[in-house]
Design a protein around this nucleic acid. Structure first.
Length: 582
DNA sequence: TTAGGGTTAG
């Protein structure tokens, strides 16, 4: 422990004092430590002599363990057939191994089918078998089916254990059923159905973090201590990651230090990756670079995810030319860029409108045998739409469907935004109807915002309003941004009465108008020459503590100017000087 | 001698 503390003396304790004014992106890239793991013997067969011991072991293993050889599901299915025809039937352990292999390839429904066949043939199943199959149900968002399997097992004397319950907890969390997960977790403890272990605490912590809570998970670490269950690197990494995602990077670093210095738990590449992402996304490049150096000091090799985080963050910062060389650095260090890495880079070029470059990366990726998915296509689509190249976008959109790939809600939203932008409302409405008729994809809050804004910008406010009313009292109708769009749209086309009704309506619903809400309505009043009303609303903003921004001042100033209220303008300019950043 | 938990893209 003492050694460990010494080892990490140079860690983030001095983070805030760490400053590097000469920082550059190329330095960041060159600071990436080389791979410390010797991968060669596992990646090629040219080193068989140098590793004779482990080789002979694995060979002898293979004789008895055909499961390790399986790379494709078809192989597994064939082996399953052979196993079921063997007399006497192989043990449950052997079938479990096979099921594990299939499950690891993410062919969950296949595993479930095999389980059904096993049950039909009378292959012995145990609690391991049911746990594997429950996991498959959970991964397919059918956790309720997972509970049914517990009941099935129970009838056959298979008592669920901590692994089984943990799988179910994880399933509930995957389906955002966090309250049910919490209830189950408490029930397990209260009724002594099983004593939670570190894995189960970690699952629960993940769920709570996902639910937007970081304080309870931290408190849970204390509970673990009390109940004699030691938190591990996963416990801390989960919370560190959640804090980073909530832009609380300093709290994450504090926890990181606590983990190392007080608990003596060593961080691994996952912990570092979370911190890297948190720091990069908040533009703290110096600190990110320090993390890379610290990884090097601790001999922890960055993995594909580390590099991808860097590529993505640089691209989002508009530094795509700094991101591209990272692909080469990866190659030098034996790390193969994957679909996510390439997609991040493609997205970076698209964001800059460099579509030819984006296309070149896309083609390069394809030539390496990496198959793009809907996220990759969406990046390209968005790029074309932003450049108003709708025909290219449309072409790509059709290509997605032709390739048997399923467009998702984002694909449709991007296309809708593009079509509205170039004023092709008829096509947009057709696409929107097509989307609504789709039984698998339904428009989300973002889609509705795009459609409402599109209609308003194309002088179709009545259609926007009727769509809004049709949405009824659902969550989307409780979105302040939607109200802002409509208030702006209505007042722009002279329907100030409707704008006022909408303004009151959102307050009745308990929504909190923001700067934008007030600004668009002030703009509406000014447009109609109702300067007194505009000033009153401006006053009201101040009263409820909603701070006007530069746009608000500009809108009001223009209104006053148009109506010759020069005294008020002078007063406002003085006020602005003291309040608004220029 | 088999099962369960944490990190990356729109």
């Amino acid at each position: 422990m003492q050694m460990m503390m010494m080892k990490f003396k140079g860690t983030f304790f001095t983070l805030h004092s760490f400053q590097n004014p000469n920082f550059s992106f190329s330095k960041l890239a060159s600071g990436i430590p080389p791979s410390q793991t010797i991968l060669a013997p596992f990646h090629s067969n040219s080193n068989s002599n140098s590793n004779s011991n482990s080789n002979s072991n694995s060979e002898s293993n293979h004789e008895f363990s055909p499961f390790e050889k399986i790379t494709k599901v078809d192989d597994a299915l064939q082996l399953f057939d052979e196993m079921t025809q063997t007399q006497p039937l192989p043990s449950a352990v052997k079938f479990n191994k096979l099921l594990t292999v299939v499950t690891k390839t993410k062919h969950y429904s296949c595993s479930i089918d095999l389980f059904k066949q096993m049950a039909a043939i009378g292959v012995p199943v145990d609690v391991y078998t049911t746990t594997i199959v429950i996991k498959c149900c959970c991964q397919m968002s059918c956790t309720t089916e997972g509970f049914a399997i517990v009941a099935y097992g129970f009838k056959r004397g298979l008592v669920p254990n901590v692994c089984t319950f943990n799988t179910l907890l994880n399933g509930l969390i995957l389906e955002d059923r966090v309250i049910e997960a919490e209830r189950l977790f408490k029930k397990l403890i209260k009724e002594k159905l099983c004593e939670p272990n570190v894995v189960m605490y970690n699952t629960m912590i993940k769920g709570l973090c996902k639910f937007g809570n970081n304080d309870i998970p931290i408190a849970l670490i204390r509970l673990m201590d009390e109940r004699g269950c030691k938190p591990d690197v996963v416990t801390y990494s989960t919370i560190i990651d959640s804090l980073c995602k909530d832009e609380m990077v300093d709290d994450a670093l504090k926890l990181f230090n606590e983990m190392i210095l007080r608990k003596g738990i060593l961080p691994n590449v996952v912990t570092y990756n979370s911190l890297m992402r948190g720091l990069c996304n908040s533009g703290r490049w110096d600190d990110a670079s320090k993390i890379l150096r610290e990884m090097e000091d601790e001999r922890i090799s960055p993995d594909v995810i580390t590099y991808t985080i860097l590529v993505d963050a640089l691209c989002k910062e508009g530094k795509v030319e700094d991101a591209e060389p990272i692909i080469n650095i990866m190659a030098e260090r034996g790390k193969v860029p994957d679909l996510v890495t390439y997609t991040s880079l493609i997205d970076g070029y698209c964001l800059q409108g460099k579509m030819r470059k984006a296309r070149a990366v896309f083609d390069g990726m394809m030539s390496k045998g990496i198959v793009p998915n809907v996220v990759t296509y969406n990046s390209l689509l968005d790029g074309y739409c932003k450049k108003l190249k709708i025909d290219e976008a449309m072409h790509l959109f059709h290509q997605i469907t032709e390739k048997d790939m399923k467009p998702d809600v984002v694909t449709y939203s991007i296309m809708l935004q593009g079509l509205f932008r170039v004023g092709r409302c008829k096509a947009a409405r057709k696409l929107f109807n097509e989307m609504r008729a789709h039984n698998r994809i339904s428009p989300d809050a973002c889609t509705y915002r795009i459609v409402l804004e599109g209609l308003c910008n194309n002088h179709q406010v009545d259609e926007a309003l009727s769509l809004f009313h049709m949405m009824g009292e659902n969550k989307l109708n409780l979105d302040i941004v939607v109200y802002n769009i409509l208030i702006d749209g209505a007042s722009k086309c002279g329907k100030l009465d409707i704008a006022k009704v909408l303004f009151n309506d959102q307050r009745v619903k308990g929504l909190h108008p923001d700067v934008w809400t007030y600004t668009v309505l002030i703009k509406g009043f000014c447009r109609e020459g109702l300067v007194r009303e505009a000033k009153e609303l401006f006053q009201k903003m101040a009263e409820i503590g909603c701070v006007p921004n530069r746009v608000t001042y500009n809108v009001l100033l223009r209104g006053l100017l148009k109506n010759g209220q020069h005294d008020t303008i002078e007063m406002l300019l003085k006020e602005m000087d003291g309040q608004v950043d220029h």
